[in-house]
Amino acid sequence: MTRRVRLDQRLTWVTLLVLAVVTYLGIVSDVLLMSVDCTTADVCRFSRQGVLFYWPPVFLLTYAGIAYAYVRVARARGVGTRVMPYAIAGAVTTLLFTAAWVAVRIYWAGRPLPENPQPTSPWLLLLDRLIGPWGMIGIALLVLARIERNLALFAFTVGYLAVVLVPINFGWVGNGSNVRTAWVPDQVISGTVLLLGAIGFALAQRRQR
């Protein structure tokens, strides 16, 4: 009985589908709005303004939309919903990511480009990926998995976060690759993982119902 109620309260595939769509759309704004200034062949100053201007409002709209859809569907099915903590977690992660990115922009704004740039620490890169929109999607999904007591979503999210935090690189980043499109493959992979998750959860839900 309890399992039946939990299944009727879930709308996992819709959540993942919406997140996949906004991730794909985010690629366009990232590429088009990025400002790149390459003074030499090796050193470029870039600013991912598309990420900063696109994601905060889109995140807030997305989480509000997902919460609304959960409430509507749960009401139609005749049960209450547990989605509010997820929407709140989404808003908090949005604020966290926005504050971090604004802080980094302010930090770099008044500084000259380093003459002899050193490789960034792997831990700093990991933190950078976690604090980005794609990492924040994963953190909020962990909250959703917890409140839904959804072990399958938890396992999926752990896999998703592994892909986001340890990006796959088949040589498309570095070696003179275009700065403007350097992050496109990572975002395509993140969006595709979410999309595949949406398809998987939709098929599983169809079988269970």
């Binding site: 009985m1 309890t2 109620v5 009727d8 005749g78 209450g80 919903t81």
Partner: peptide, 21 residues
């Protein structure tokens, strides 16, 4: 006991849902 259990899990439950379950 079934009514209380379902209502606890669902937080809020509709009459028809309880009747079916």
């Amino acid at each position: 006991l079934g009514i209380l259990t379902i209502t606890h899990e669902a937080r809020r439950v509709e009459f028809g849902y309880l009747r079916t379950q």
